[in-house]
Amino acid sequence: MNQFNTFLASFKNLTTAGYLFYGLGLITLISAISVVTAKNPIHSVLALIFTFFCLTGHYMLLNAQFLAIVNIIVYAGAIMVLFLFAIMFLNLKEEDEEAKTNVTKMAAVIVGGVLMVLLLSIFNYAPVGTYNPASFDAKTGLVERLGIVLYSDYILPFELASILFLVAMVGAVMLGKREAGDPHF
C-alpha cells in the first residue's frame, strides 16, 4: 500500500513527457500483446505495424527524430508491407490452426521465457546512461549531429553499407533486365 502511494505521488509529479510516455507505453504493450493473440495473421501484422508506430513515438520522446522517421520508413513502411504481401499470398487462413501444435507452443513458451529472463537480468545489472540537464545538448539525436558522427567517426562502415545497398539495387535491376529475344517494351 505504501509502495502504491509513493507510486501515485510520483505519478502526480510527472511532466507532460512523462504522462505521454506512460500513455504511449500502455498502448504499445496492448498492441504488442494483440500481435501475439490475434487469430488472423493479417490482423497480427497490422497490430505489429501499430506497435512500430508506438515505438516511433517513443523515439520522438527521446528526441531521436531521425531514428523515429527511419523506423516508420523501414519497419512500418517497407518491411511490414513485404510481410503483408507474403502473408496474403500464402493464404494462411485455413491451415493456421493446424500449425499450432502443442510442441510448437511449448517451444515458443520456452524460447520466449528464456529471452525474458535474459533481458531482465541484463537490464538489472547493466548501467543505465545518465545525463546532466545543465550541460545537455538539445540537438543530440537530430539529423545534423547524426550526419556529423556518421561522416567522421563512422565514415568507412557507413560508405560500405551504402555501397552494399547500391549493389543490391543494381543487382535487382540486372536480374529483371531484358535479354535478347525478350519482347520489347
Partner: peptide, 25 residues
Amino acid sequence: GAAVGIFYLMAILSFDVVGILMAGW
C-alpha cells in the same frame, strides 16, 4: 517545425500503402 520535416513527409506518405492494402484485402 520539426527538424526532419521532409523526411517525415516521405515516411508518412509511404504509410499510405498500408491503408490501400487493408482496403484491398
